[in-house]
């Protein structure tokens, strides 16, 4: 196992492009998370210090959240909407939230990602670095691809309102279903399936449900089909 320390974000992206099995390394919690993306990785690319680690309000009113901001820093910030803080708390360990980064959680593109459903429902985009330069990319598009771009920072609208709900056997087990609604947009992360987004609660019909350790396909379909209507009936 080799660890590379590139000097610029572009160097990091070029290293990743040349090395199919390499992983970006920041907090590292996603790399070592159970069933994490470690796989056949033989090389690491250290991105600490290369991408932002702060939360700032921009002149256009959007909140710029650096990819290396930790989940606990998101919770403690006054600038972050409450439903994102709820999503950050899905990572139930305080210690883990102190090391896990927003960039790492999104970059791993897990089907039980703590944050992706909330970010996708809020139609959040992030600035990324590609071999061709900087490019804005939406989280919902990125979640279902395998592109190797480096996430630089996220742009979050602080005035959005919504909710996010998680179903798992315990707080410490992987989620079976995470559902989010922000404004009029819905998103569903279902274990074993692709992320699905849309403008009606019927998006549950678009999910290709699979039996996994977290629950049967039928169980997850039931959860996904009822969560929005039950949540909004309250």
């Amino acid at each position: 196992m080799v660890i590379h320390h590139p000097r610029t974000p572009l160097d990091a992206v070029m290293l990743k492009k040349e090395r199919e099995d390499a992983l970006y390394l920041a907090g590292g919690t996603e790399d070592l998370r159970l069933n994490g993306p470690m796989g056949e990785a033989t090389e690491l690319i250290d991105i600490n210090g290369l991408v932002p680690s702060t939360i700032e309000k921009r002149e256009d009113g959007l909140i710029k959240v650096g990819a290396l901001v930790t989940l606990q820093e998101m919770i403690e910030s006054d600038l972050i909407p409450e439903y994102f803080k709820t999503a950050c708390r899905f990572c139930s360990s305080f210690e883990k939230r102190n090391a896990a980064t927003i960039g790492g959680n999104v970059g791993a593109r897990r089907d039980d990602s703590y944050l992706i459903a909330a970010l996708a429902a809020a139609d959040v985009s992030f600035m990324s670095i590609t071999p061709h330069g900087e490019e804005l990319k939406s989280v919902s598009e990125y979640a279902n691809t395998h592109c190797k771009r480096l996430i630089e920072y996220f742009l979050i609208d602080p005035d959005t309102k919504g909710y996010v709900h998680r179903f798992g056997i315990t707080a410490n087990t992987h989620a079976a279903v995470i559902a989010a609604r922000v404004g009029k947009r819905y998103a569903l992360s279902v274990k074993g399936s692709n992320l699905v987004c849309g403008n009606t609660p019927d998006i549950y019909k678009d999910v290709d449900y699979k039996d996994t350790l977290e629950g049967s396909a039928e169980y997850k379909r039931y959860l996904a089909s009822t969560v929005f209507t039950l949540k909004e009936a309250k």
């Binding site: 660890i3 320390h5 390394l25 920041a26 907090g27 590292g28 919690t29 790399d31 070592l32 998370r33 690491l44 250290d46 600490n48 883990k96 090391a99």
Partner: peptide, 8 residues
């Protein structure tokens, strides 16, 4: 859950 490579 912290790889030693991330504590340099």
């Amino acid at each position: 859950i912290i790889p030693v490579g991330s504590v340099g």
